[in-house]
Write a protein that binds this DNA or RNA. Sequence first.
DNA 1: CAGTTTAGTTGCATTTCAATACCAAAATGA
DNA 2: TCATTTTGGTATTGAAATGCAACTAAACTG
Lengths: 171, 171
Amino acid sequence: MTTTPIPLAERNCSWARALDILGDRWSLLVVREAFGGMSKFSEFERSTGAAKNILTSRLETLCGNGILRREPQREGSSRMRYVLTAKGLALFPIIVALGQWGDKWIFGADGEPVQVVDRNSGAPVQHIAVFSHDGRHLAPQDVALRPGPGASELTRRHLDRIAKVAAARDS
Amino acid sequence: MTTTPIPLAERNCSWARALDILGDRWSLLVVREAFGGMSKFSEFERSTGAAKNILTSRLETLCGNGILRREPQREGSSRMRYVLTAKGLALFPIIVALGQWGDKWIFGADGEPVQVVDRNSGAPVQHIAVFSHDGRHLAPQDVALRPGPGASELTRRHLDRIAKVAAARDS
DNA sequence: CAGTTTAGTTGCATTTCAATACCAAAATGA
DNA sequence: TCATTTTGGTATTGAAATGCAACTAAACTG
């Protein structure tokens, strides 16, 4: 029996689809710099340190996937700038969470190179966490995966397998 | 003047360091499956769809970076299993946030293949967001980046550049 | 104890990455 | 105005990562 490996880009799975777009060394770094206000090619080049051709390719796919919008720097100019769309801005919690994870687990307490702070008060933002609908803090073992409204038959089977493995482990 | 492009793995930047480890198509997918309870090589192979050699390589770097722990499936066995460490478990909010982003922005409202729910109540978890220390919801423009205790001179200069660009834009 | 599954390894073709060189249009300066 | 520099990329090329398929030794199964 040969299993058919569906490409990430065609899977009925948010994680696979997101990683097909963002899963590489540079894309999220570019997005992070965009949150920092960078918008010109040269700004991204300097701040990320990516090679020009890589940067070109990343900016293309980020634009192609609606995360950045490409527009003239000044009206009529052929120089472009790249700005976050609503879809791109929605990556904000992921970017912050990724930074916090690196702060804590790579650099360690009090070794973090950069702090994300509330611009208003100057205080660091809260550590990003998962909360239940009624505001309780949830740990990994407190959640489960359920088929959603768009679940395909394959997705359902996959979730069943997960549930089975989990049940076997907990028994 | 030639700029020296420092490798991601050596940068004084949590995002660069995190992406050097996790920034590829498969690593976070493997971690997601680990959260789902997968632990054996074959389980990861089936659930992620990654090729064996790729999977071997990913499991190695995830173990090497302390995100997974490799241990015998049963004592004395040479069959290994891969379990999330504390460092790996700390990726939980990132995994949930990434899934929510894909749900909303790739599949759209009511099209999400999978829901992350509170195991207890069955209700979907809250949408992950950034909060100030006093509990206010923060948007991208409400935060700033500040040098932390571990900031290098280069990092400080980089942050200065960001601040300058932001100031220029806001003026 | 024969057959199957598991957990990989190896080899090879293809694809992607990344460094460098190059270039045209735009901005800058004398 | 005209030369120079900067900007925003392309093109070329070698190196590295990816992915497919075949192979294998140990472990499990009946």
